[in-house]
Write a protein that binds this DNA or RNA. Structure first.
Lengths: 208, 208
DNA sequence: TAGATTGTTAATCGATTAACAATC
DNA sequence: TAGATTGTTAATCGATTAACAATC
């Protein structure tokens, strides 16, 4: 099947499967089933088997899936059986928290540079990295072959930063502030308020 | 129509509409149309009208929607035309970044306490708040009528914290680490790696 | 073998969209 | 009025699920 025909909603579930498999691996489990995975993720076993079937046959009838093997296959499908270099723009509280987050390596990512425009911050150390001047962006991107950026600057600066990134060849952005992008650039938003607001709809306001 | 019958996917789009309307308000725009909103959000105008029609008639034929009025209606629907008190668990880098994020008030939320178990951190100031001992959790929740919590502790502590929160009556959790919860507790995850991994699928690896 | 679980088809379910009357 | 845009219906599209043969 042509990869372009696979529903995006399927692609978006694969990282969840991978995370669950990583957890099972850590717990020492060797084999799992679509049912077990489904229970852990709140997804039907049929849906998991259907999703996987877009890409191949990874299980054994009567037995299930080899945890490590399936995880490796998913990494291959998602192209994270390699390391993608990332740049992080913004070295405020949020930027520093992201720079020190150690879940990226496991996921197939490596932050190779933290950039900011604040002269006060440039030169300071954050984790293993020294904060660089945003003016270095073109050099850094070329040098490390970076295609993906994380934006952690204040909301009103985010769009400008995003435009700059795209002008310098960035193809995918994870942004903590809202931005709009041309259709050929992948974008993912992280906004805690949006998450909270879709929960309050369901809450009963017992609070006075 | 019974609220329980409204598709969750519709509910999850409403905060996006609200954010776009807030932006339009800031830009001084008084009236908008489903088409304009749709273009800004990458959603069809028909879908927006359909979504809104679950809740009432908010527009004028030939004219469109009053920006402030529609925003206020959405706030009412989402129950964020009031302030929900939040507690934040975890005062590391991430917790401090969240505590200082000033988008919560606008969205209908207020962090009333930051709690941690680290004696070194307890008592320190973060933004307007003093870091409190996690042992204070029951008191804090009761005192401020808190139903929603944000978890920003290390991954391996998150599940324990979540269990504690639920035991103390929390009904909704926004977590930066993966946890599982009983079905009657609302949960939203924020995981940068999951977002990144569903973008790499579509990237062409020109990188060596 | 018997039991279990996959991979897959076909049916069902639900969400999106096209079309248009209503009406500002 | 003419033009524009809503709200809504019905059609279409696409995703999920039930069922089951295949097979380990």
């Amino acid at each position: 099947m042509n990869p372009l025909e696979i529903p995006e909603i399927v692609i978006r579930r694969l990282p969840l499967y991978l995370r669950a498999l990583n957890l099972l691996t850590e717990q020492g489990q060797v084999v799992t089933s679509s049912q077990e995975l489904g229970e852990r993720l709140g997804i039907s076993s049929t849906q998991i088997r259907k999703d996987l079937s877009y890409f191949g046959e990874f299980g054994k009838q009567g037995t299930g899936y080899d945890v490590r093997y399936l995880a490796e296959q998913l990494r291959q499908i998602l192209q994270v059986n390699r390391t993608w270099n990332l740049v992080l723009i913004g070295a405020g509280d949020l930027g520093r928290a992201i720079a020190r987050y150690n879940g990226f390596e496991r996921g197939g990512f490596s932050i190779v540079a933290v950039l900011d425009r604040d002269k006060q911050k440039i030169g300071n150390q954050v984790g293993q990295l020294r904060i660089q001047d945003i003016a270095q962006l073109p050099d850094v991107l070329r040098q490390h072959h970076v295609q993906i950026a994380i934006i952690a600057v204040p909301p009103d600066e985010a769009q400008g930063v995003a435009n700059l990134l795209v002008k310098n060849g960035i193809r995918a952005i994870l942004s903590y502030a809202h931005i709009t992008m041309p259709a050929d650039v992948r974008i993912q938003h992280i906004d805690p308020v949006v998450g909270l607001q879709s929960m309050t709809y369901y809450l009963v306001p017992t609070q006075p």
